[in-house]
Design a protein around this nucleic acid. Structure first.
Length: 424
RNA sequence: GGAGAGGUGGCGGAGUGGUCGAUCGCGUCGGUCUCGAAAACCGAAGUAGGUGCAAGCCUACCGUGGGUUCGAAUCCCACCCUCUCCGCCA
């Protein structure tokens, strides 16, 4: 959601910002609409002021027993006139909100130009893709050979894009999740939250899923939505709040299942558990003072990177280009892991600074310690990290020639000391 | 699911058709007094929009959305939420 004042202040800059997203100029139209809105509102407010005066005078007349017939006649006329003005003002307001809420966030100047993911820029790489002296297998080959990853069973239960994990593999997923969230709470300063997985429309609007991306969501019969990420409930915790400046930053983390319809991705990544309708993810969310969000973005990304490093994975940080950056983000770092079986880099985490974009939608503000006026907070979110994909990366990275998989050191305490998942 | 009660400013709590954006208390901030503090006293203090160089002025907001009325925190309708009891249930 954009502030109409940023458009008013510099329409040329606004159009330039939207152009980076591949959108046509629209400032002129928005400003014309804004002028119409203000005109209608002003006309209405004048009538309202007159109405209030008349009502007061009529009340006074009634009390003193004076004749108020003429006043009441004018008031009736006024009310009739106001009907059209009210409608005009409301329509203009809705029209303005509709366009301002449909436009994506203004990108950080550091975001590189580009159309799609091929224009993303690698910033840093940790480790080198290994060159084992055998042909590494993909995660589903390993999992199925071990008899611990059941796609047919999942399809029977729920359809395509679901997986049933069994035995040590099910436990490995749980171990990954537990270890990650414990790392973030005990060492990275995040407060764990257990949140609803089903939220209302206002909550989905706050983080930007609605109204534009409803097709990506699962909707329940009672009008609620399954969360596509814990970012949604965690961030909306501050919706409609005015926080004292001293309370910031707020840092939350949650383990949750994520539900995605994957509309529009038919045929992509159909094999294996890379792209599912349901997966586990550990999410991090920060709410900061405006000047702090940039540093927080770096900090959060490093928290995610640490997870990958400690799991012994090969990863790299990329900054998404203009065309690939999500609707609500001003800047996004993706972390990609090297999957030896697939022989490709795949996204495992995405850390975004949304600045005040979501805060406007949520009306989430802070009261400055000094000075007047409340300001919108900044919101950030990042995966820390996707558990399902971490499982894939661990399997493919630590697989042995015999098809067994070494359990990363950090996970062993969570695996009852198990150091290897194998076909014994 | 059934029955009942209730949602008012940071909190508590009045207000049931006419200067009510809202009495009062607590808390907060500023001041007086004091060596300092407490107490006491005085004062300030909601959110957003419009307009204006500014001081200011105007408008809206008493859970949300409609309605009645010249006029609604107050009356009517719908919805949401909270609490109590009953039933069911992990």
């Amino acid at each position: 959601m954009h502030d109409i004042r940023t458009v008013r202040a510099d329409p040329v800059a606004f159009d330039a910002a939207m152009a980076r997203r591949g959108l046509p100029p629209m400032a002129e139209e928005v400003l014309a609409q804004d002028a119409a809105r203000r005109g209608a509102q002003q006309a209405l407010q004048e009538k309202q002021a007159r109405r209030n005066v008349l009502a007061r005078e009529i009340g006074q007349a009634k009390r003193t027993g004076a004749n108020s017939v003429a006043l009441e006649a004018e008031a009736v006329r006024l009310r009739d006139e106001m009907v059209a003005l009210e409608e005009a003002a409301a329509t203009a307001d809705r029209a303005q909100t509709a366009i301002l809420e449909s436009l994506p966030n203004i990108l950080d100047p550091e975001v590189p130009d580009g159309r799609d993911e091929s224009d993303n820029v690698v910033l840093h790489q940790h480790g080198e893709p290994p060159r084992p002296n055998f042909t590494p297998r993909q995660h589903f080959e390993l999992g199925e050979a071990l008899g611990l990853m059941d796609f047919a069973g999942a399809a029977k239960l729920a359809g395509a894009r679901f997986t049933v994990l069994k035995g040590p593999l099910a436990r490995l997923e749980r171990a990954l999740a537990q270890w990650m969230i414990t790392l973030h709470t005990e060492e990275h300063g995040y407060t764990e939250a257990a949140v609803p997985y089903l939220v209302n429309a206002a909550t989905m609007y706050g983080t930007g899923q609605l109204p534009k991306f409803e097709a990506d969501l699962f909707k329940t019969t009672d009008g609620r939505y399954l969360i596509p990420t814990a970012e949604v409930p965690l961030t909306n915790l501050v919706r409609e709040e005015i926080l004292p400046e001293a309370a910031l930053p707020l840092r939350f983390t949650a383990l949750s299942p994520c539900f995605r319809s994957e509309a529009g991705s038919a045929g992509r990544d159909t094999r294996g558990m890379l792209r599912q309708h349901q997966f586990q993810k550990v999410e991090m969310v920060s709410i900061t003072r405006p000047p702090d969000s940039e540093a927080e973005h770096e900090r959060m990304t490093r928290c995610a990177e640490r997870v990958l490093t400690e799991l012994g994975l090969v990863w790299r940080r990329i900054v998404l280009c203009a065309g690939d950056t999500g609707f609500g983000a001003a800047k996004t770092y993706d972390l990609e892991v090297w999957l030896p079986g697939q022989g490709a880099w795949r996204e495992i985490s995405s850390c975004s600074n949304c600045r005040d974009f979501q805060a406007r939608r949520m009306n989430a503000r802070m009261k400055p310690a000094e000075g007047k006026g409340n300001v919108f907070v900044h919101t950030l979110n990042g995966s820390g990290v996707a558990v399902g994909r971490a499982l894939i990366a661990v399997l493919e990275t630590h697989q042995q020639e015999d098809g067994s998989v070494l359990v990363p050191e950090v996970l062993r305490p969570w695996m009852g000391g198990l150091d290897r998942i194998g076909p014994n």
